[in-house]
Design a protein around this nucleic acid. Sequence first.
DNA 1: AAATCACGCAACCGCAGTGAT
DNA 2: TATCACTGCGGTTGCGTGATT
Length: 205
Amino acid sequence: MEGAGSREYRKGLWTAEEDRILMDYVKVHGKGKWNRAAKVTGLRRGGKSCRLRWMNYLSPSVKRGAFSEEEDDLIIRLHKLLGNRWSLIAGRIPGRTDNQVKNHWNTHLSIKLGVKKGKSKISSSKSSKKMEANFDTNLSSNDRLIPSNKTETELQNVIEDSHEKEIEITSMHEPILTSDCYENFWLFNDDSYLYTPSLMELLDE
DNA sequence: AAATCACGCAACCGCAGTGAT
DNA sequence: TATCACTGCGGTTGCGTGATT
């Protein structure tokens, strides 16, 4: 069995046995250190593959089954606002992973809404990636609203630059998002921003 | 019944960010 | 400060399966 190439990582679908081994590892050691998990358990899988399998399938918090009307509606609204930032969108939908949301959008919702499939300027632009990183930082920490390596002005420039691009995109479908709306959205300082009245009002617009 | 097609989803890939040393 | 390992993200690919011919 340990022939040539035995150190190569296995690819393709996970077997029930591999799932069980990974579950056992997480039970004992917890999440994280996925590369170590691959070595310790003897799974011939890369750390990234282990992480993905846990996050998208094995984790007890993952909700299986069809998306509800409410979930569809929320995804559509958030996608209007955020573009292809699937992890952010998924973070607002309990039990759903970014992969699930992304697949659901690409296979159902984009067709339903008549959105042409293609690379999003929003998500592929370097500025938006940076902005997103900053955005995530803001989400995870109350005391670091502005990243230490950016002044407020610089951050504002990045946001406004992104606004122009996003508005350009979103206006193709529903030109309702003004820069004021975005400011209200981006410049929050509360982890529970999704459920704040201002954002919900914004979504309802 | 067999072959082909279309769709949905799981998984992979490449890149960027972050933290440890 | 530089480097490396690890993690996380979005885009894309390809397999499995059900529908259609």
